[in-house]
């Protein structure tokens, strides 16, 4: 600072570097813990506000049922958001998947397993369509998925209106073996474990993060960008299909509002969990899962508090802002967009 050169021995340099590394590791650990802080804050605040009712046996089952769909979709969405993509078609494609499954079930000609498999293929096709628009037609993914969403919503409304005036129901009692806490818990654990393994320990997840970090660098490093982008969307489609199946049997029917709003809820979950919307190395699947759980517990808890309908969403929004303000990654500083 005063213009004098400071000379250090190599040992001193090594010591300084060790201290800097230690500080960086400490900071990294704190950064990794921060997303959990939001979740803990919500749980503690709502436990106090509901007088412990949040964790009553009855309500725990409710939390599982209510968060199931969003957690499954969030697991799939991690693969897409990790490479900087997004998909607004999830809601409409979920509704269409449910319609296909119900139509096949009601026809009595198709075995249940075949109907479910066909249903899963619908959101896979839709998500891959979004990927193709972005990769091959060069349409920005935000607008491309919005356009495809319009098409799918129109198709869903049309088929629902033509077939059953907007509502197709199945017998609730016949499929209770699927809409069952034990089955859901098993499926949830299986999807989370499979997703976590694929995302954190295989090339699929790692390449997605590299692509999200810098697409050009990834391409020049030999990563087949198109392949891994499409794989990400395929996983999202599969997860949306699975979520659609369970949503259908929980509601025992499909209407043209089935799945509506899922895309915005998904974005809220991803953001609340601290998952970077532009993807990259800091993407962690656990953040997406945490975000989904936080949103669902928040919704459930605020309803349990018996707050006025006029303010419940306002409080949800305020809590969202507080949690995001506390837990979101600020490493980009002023360059955040």
């Amino acid at each position: 600072m005063d213009g004098k050169q400071v000379s250090r021995t190599s040992e001193e340099n090594v010591q300084i570097q060790k201290q800097l590394d230690k500080k960086a590791r400490q900071k990294e650990r704190i950064m990794n813990l921060i997303p959990y802080a939001g979740f803990v804050f919500v749980v503690v605040a709502l436990t106090i506000a509901t007088g412990g009712n949040l964790f009553s046996a009855n309500n725990l089952a409710n939390i599982l049922n209510q968060s199931f769909v969003m957690i499954i979709v969030a697991v799939g969405a991690s693969f897409v958001y990790a490479h900087g993509g997004m998909d607004f078609t999830v809601g409409a494609s979920m509704g269409l998947a449910e319609f296909v499954i119900v139509t096949m079930i009601l026809s009595d000609k198709v075995p249940l397993a075949a109907a479910l498999l066909t249903g899963v293929l619908v959101p896979v096709a839709s998500s891959v369509g979004v990927a193709c628009c972005a990769l091959y037609l060069k349409i920005p993914v935000f607008v491309g998925s919005l356009g495809l969403r319009m098409v799918l919503m129109g198709v869903l409304n049309m088929v629902m209106t033509n077939s059953a005036n907007g509502q197709l129901n199945i017998s609730y009692n016949d499929y209770r073996f699927i809409d069952n806490v034990a089955v859901k818990l098993l499926v949830l654990v299986a999807v989370i474990v499979a997703g976590y393994y694929l995302f954190e320990y295989t090339g699929i997840g790692k390449k997605a993060k590299i692509i999200g970090g810098n697409r050009t660098v990834a391409r020049e490093s030999g990563v087949n960008v198109s392949k891994y982008v499409i794989w990400g969307y395929v996983f999202l489609g599969v997860c949306v299909g699975i979520a659609g199946i369970f949503s259908l049997f929980r509601a025992a029917g499909v209407s043209n509002t089935s799945g509506s709003g899922t895309e915005f809820n998904l974005m809220t979950c991803i953001a609340l969990g601290g998952f970077p919307l532009k993807g990259g190395q800091r993407s962690r699947i656990i953040n997406a899962i945490l975000g989904a759980m936080t949103v669902c517990i928040l919704s459930n808890g605020l309803l349990l508090c018996n707050l006025d309908a006029n303010i419940i969403n306002g409080i949800k929004g305020l809590l969202f802002i507080v949690i995001v303000g506390l837990s979101y990654d600020r490493s980009s500083g002023k360059l955040v967009s």
């Binding site: 009553s56 009855n58 409710n62 309803l303 018996n306 309908a309």
Partner: peptide, 23 residues
């Protein structure tokens, strides 16, 4: 009375009913 607004999706209606029962 506890006033609950439900969106028009069956999923949200069921969630609201379940939570009402738990409260």
């Amino acid at each position: 009375f506890n006033y609950v607004e439900t969106s028009n999706t069956t999923e949200n209606t069921i969630a609201a009913i379940e939570t009402a029962v738990a409260s």
